[in-house]
């Protein structure tokens, strides 16, 4: 990074709504050109953080700069340097594709000489070539979402905030959307994108895990997966996953257990014998495949990190 100023820097960023602390003393640094995924359960504070960084909410405490500008002291300058797209689809349905683009271009005062070319770029990017005169409300979700991204980047913002942009969009369109995100990042755009799709987390340079208003972990997907979970992770299959899960929660040596599709992932305290676990299940009248050690996935890491249960102290 060679001393280049971070695209986003937050220090002690806090937002309280009455007695409820939505975001609690969040520190975050995002370098130019990074794609950072904001992951966490609903209500964790992802949207609140993004809205503070966009100047839509005033922080209760702490500071942050975006593209080098202070979000509290220079909110209008910040707004000129960011693009924002919210989970709520927010284009004008009764306007055509071209009219929406022209509207947002005018709002950001894109010079008229450049507007035409940038609109053409956005239309191509959204895959809407030839449909410039279609009313936006007639477009399917994936197109609307790519057009919304096109509107958000018309003014070439160096920083882009995407708040669950892919919610409610089919997988194929999600995939295409992520391709767009990466091509923007390749052009040097810094992107903070929140999602609750785990597979999307893998597409990010770094992942910031947030729960109950706290930043729990931040790192590349690889780094996070190598995190010491404080035990060994095993996987087993059971025809009665619900009953097995309930039984496992009280089993000796089990730190945590969670259902992953038709499997169960069980985190065992160091030194616990996996074979003993199989015997435990049989003793409880449950059938299960023998536990086999696995490499933790991102989801395993998140489940572990978000859970309040402290890991047993490593010997």
């Amino acid at each position: 990074m060679n001393g280049a100023p971070p695209a986003v820097q937050a220090r002690g960023l806090t937002k309280r709504f009455g007695a409820f602390v939505a975001v609690d003393a969040l520190d975050l640094d995002i370098a130019k050109g990074e794609v950072v995924g904001f992951i966490g359960p609903n209500g964790a504070g992802k949207s609140t953080t993004i809205r503070m960084l966009c100047g839509l909410l005033r922080p209760s405490a702490g500071t942050a700069t975006v593209a080098g500008y202070d979000i509290v002291r220079e909110p209008e300058t910040v707004r000129a340097h960011i693009g924002y797209m919210s989970q709520k689809f927010s284009l004008y349905g009764d306007l055509t594709v071209a009219e929406n683009l022209r509207f947002f271009g005018g709002l950001y005062r894109v010079p008229r000489a450049e507007l035409k070319e940038r609109m053409a770029f956005a239309v191509t990017m959204a895959g809407l070539t030839g449909r410039e005169d279609a009313l936006v409300r007639t477009l399917a979700g994936g197109w609307k979402q790519r057009l919304a991204l096109g509107c958000a980047i018309l003014h070439r913002p160096p920083v882009l905030f995407l708040d669950e942009p892919t919610s409610g969009v089919e997988p194929e369109a999600r995939r295409r959307f992520w391709d767009l995100i990466h091509s923007l990042a390749a052009d040097g755009v810094t992107i903070l994108v929140s999602t609750h799709y785990m597979d999307e987390a893998e597409y990010c340079n770094r992942i910031a895990l947030i729960a109950a208003g706290h930043l729990i972990a931040i790192g590349s997907p690889g780094e996070l997966k190598r995190r010491d979970l404080g035990g060994a992770l095993v996987e087993l299959e059971s025809p009665q996953p619900g009953a097995a899960l309930a039984a496992l929660h009280g089993a000796p040596g089990v730190v945590e257990a969670a259902i992953f599709g038709d499997r169960l992932h069980v985190l065992l305290a160091p030194g616990t014998d996996a074979a003993a676990l199989a015997r435990f299940l049989v003793a409880h009248g449950l059938t299960a495949t023998p536990p086999k050690p696995i490499i933790p996935s991102l989801e395993d890491v998140f489940v572990r990190l978000v859970s309040r249960k402290p890991a047993p102290e490593a010997a």
Binding site: C54, R79, S86, K88, S90, Y92, L107, R109
Partner: peptide
């Protein structure tokens, strides 16, 4: 209600 107001408010419009 539509969410377009939020989109306008993040722009530098006065």
């Amino acid at each position: 209600e539509m969410g377009t107001l939020e989109q306008i408010m993040v722009s530098p419009i006065s």
